[in-house]
Amino acid sequence: MTEIDFLNWVRGPGFQIATIIFVAGVLIRIFEIILLGRKANLAEAKGSEMSSGLRTIVTRSVPQADSFKRSTFTIVTGYIFHIGLFVTIFLYAPHILLIKDIVGISWPALPTPVVDAFAVISIISLLAILIHRFSNKVLHYLTNFEDLLVWFVTIAPLVTGYIAFHRIGFTAPTLLGIHILSVEILMIVFPFTKLMHAFTLFMARWYNGAISGYRGVES
């Protein structure tokens, strides 16, 4: 297998396999969650579920003062790498092109050096998060294999993408192939791990808010 064969495989059948597992996995899980249902609440509604739910999606995305003070590091690094991931995934021209090819919509890209900087910042914050995870006794105790797997599959596309862009070590087709492969691994791991939070996060927040709204209390 030549390196171009490898690149063609990850751009073709490999991406197809990853897409099937990703889409099927995510959808089946979401359907399962939604269809699980809840018992009808027989108490009288004291407020709106919808508005409280929507408000909670926003309010819970902003860290509260006391919890921010308690875990400043986790919140700051968490935000940094999530924003970094957003920028590198959605505002880099070749990625937008990929999305356009699949979904049909596109938007303007950021200049490459800007995306590059975001990638570096994300990588640094993810490394810091791992160090923190092991240096903090409680976090270390709570860490299991899945946490490490999820960390690895998240940082891998960032690192391989950075290396591919700067062409470090190997030739371009190999590096690009490895980068795409790392994304495919992320896609495959995604539905079966806590990475699912990208989809369930807002559902859960809405639901929390909706319960409080029904009871007429602040969420």
């Binding site: 063609n8 751009r11 073709g12 059948p13 991406f15 197809q16 897409t19 099937i20 889409v23 099927a24 996995g25 995510v26 959808l27 089946i28 899980r29 979401i30 359907f31 399962e32 269809l35 070749p94 990625h95 092109l97 990929l98 090819d101 699949i102 979904v103 049909g104």
Partner: peptide
């Protein structure tokens, strides 16, 4: 950066199947 296969079709077929399974 584009896949060489028709991923839109793959995704749609998968989504339809997955919805049924879900």
């Amino acid at each position: 950066s584009m896949p060489t296969e028709n991923i839109t079709q793959t995704a749609l077929y998968t989504a339809a199947g997955a919805a049924a399974v879900g």
